[in-house]
């Protein structure tokens, strides 16, 4: 990918002491810039980034790392948690993207909502609540979006098994 930051990015693993950008640890994944703010700093950082030109919040999604033993590419000082909220911001002035990965613990899956900053992200946050059970504090409509209101569970969690409808083989009614 021709990301604007590809030139100064040693693709691959981050350096040992966490490098900082906008005051938070930064890594590069395949040349793409990834920031790792903590939960408290995250909405402020999004505002700061908007002032710096990253004014389109393109995407927000959750990730469940339950059972993921692989190296997650986190910088030193960032504790891996079960959930992650991943936000993609886009800079139109100097075309480039920046990604935020926020660690969200399993026992307290709450982050602050981005809706006051980026109203367009409302549905993405509803989807993340629906699919992962991550709550967004301050969200104007914290309801399910894709699944029915009375649905039990959050299907994109790793411990929510992919459903199969058991096939019941019954004897076909006999014509005789």
């Amino acid at each position: 990918m021709s990301e604007a930051t590809a030139a100064d990015a040693p693709a691959g693993e981050p350096a040992a002491p966490a490098e900082l950008m906008f005051g938070v640890p930064v890594t590069r994944s395949r040349g793409q810039v990834v920031l790792h703010p903590d939960r408290a700093a995250y909405p402020g950082l999004v505002r700061e980034l908007r002032a710096a030109g990253y004014w389109v919040c393109v995407d927000l999604c959750g990730v469940d790392h339950l059972g993921n033993a692989a190296d997650r590419g986190l910088p030193a000082g960032v504790d891996p948690q079960r959930f992650e909220v991943v936000v993609n911001l886009l800079n139109h002035r100097e075309p480039g993207r920046i990604r935020l990965r926020v660690q969200v613990p399993e026992d307290d899956p709450v982050v602050e909502s981005l809706v006051p900053v980026h109203p367009g992200i409302e549905n993405h946050e509803r989807e993340t609540w629906d699919m992962f059970g991550i709550r967004f504090d301050g969200h104007p409509d914290p309801t399910r979006i894709l699944l029915p209101e009375d649905w039990d569970g959050h299907p994109l969690r790793k411990d929510d098994p992919a459903g199969r409808i058991p096939v019941q083989f019954k004897a076909a009614p006999s014509a005789r």
């Binding site: 999604c61 990730v63 367009g120 409302e122 993405h124 989807e127």
Partner: peptide
């Protein structure tokens, strides 16, 4: 993949 997420343009545009 551990996670495969598609950012659907229709999904985002629907919010307008």
């Amino acid at each position: 993949p551990v996670r495969m997420h598609i950012r659907g343009p229709s999904f985002a545009n629907l919010h307008t």
